[in-house]
Design a protein around this nucleic acid. Structure first.
Lengths: 143, 143
DNA sequence: ATAATTGCAAATACTTTGCAGTACG
DNA sequence: CGTACTGCAAAGTATTTGCAATTAT
């Protein structure tokens, strides 16, 4: 059973409906990566002519409430969505925008320590640290 | 010399002007804590009648470009500003909004490791991890 | 059939911009 | 006095909402 079929089954089991709009949004997110509502809309309008921004916003919200997608706020204010269930962390270069994945063993160890000392239960399935990548450091140091 | 006098001097030395509007914004941020542009505006309008949102936005941007304030994007999308030069990290409870400071020795160690393995130079003067505080965990576990 | 879901259109909130007048140094 | 800066008003962008029509089950 494909990933999308599983989502369909899960949505129906919970008493909701699988619509072309929801399917399209799930397929878009299933490509992998992060998408803002605007980006999802841009793609969705090709798959489902006539779909509106309002529907995309409502669909993403719906899917997030049911834990099928997660969102994170980007530095520029955009809310980025991706399929849930996949813990990973990034480094983001603030100059060129390059993103690299980082080993999450390193992070997870610290998160566990933080949880132990604070009593908090942390979300942190998707952290982003911003900085300057090696290349942009060179450009900035010798302008 | 007070902190505010130092800012005044620095601004003038760089060829800019210290205006009542800039002074008010600096004094507001000097209270400590984080403020969104809207919050800064609400306070500034009492200190400087007639000040506009546009001026507040421009002032915060101006001060950030000159490294006198730093901003961070909150989970809800608001851009929060504070005076620069003060490294610290928070845990934020996503249910009740409580914020607690955390020991940054723990974080800084990981940041150094990340920088070493990635070659990035990280900003990270102000990280926020979100999660559930102990109290809200109890409420959520037994509803 | 019927309740969930969507499209439409308007409202809201936030942020940015051009320009003419003001005031800091 | 000259230019940096501000106020005003308007535009731009992102997101949300009410409601009637549609559609998945």
């Amino acid at each position: 059973m494909t990933c999308i079929e599983q989502f369909t089954r899960e949505i129906r089991q919970r008493g909701y409906r699988m619509t072309p709009q929801r399917l399209a949004v799930l397929q878009i997110l299933h490509q992998g990566g992060h998408f803002s509502p605007g980006e999802v809309y841009e793609q969705a309008r090709h798959a489902v002519p006539g779909v509106t921004e309002a529907t995309v916003y409502r669909t993403l919200e719906f899917l997030e409430e049911r834990q099928m997608v997660v969102s994170a706020r980007a530095r520029d204010g955009r809310l980025l969505y991706e399929l849930a269930g996949h813990t990973h962390h990034h480094l983001l270069c603030r100059a060129c925008g390059r993103m690299v994945q980082i080993d999450h063993a390193l992070i997870d160890e610290v998160l566990r320590q933080l949880e132990a000392t604070s009593g908090f239960r942390l979300d942190a399935t998707h952290l982003t640290f911003s900085g300057l990548c090696p290349e942009c450091q060179r450009k900035e140091d010798k302008p």
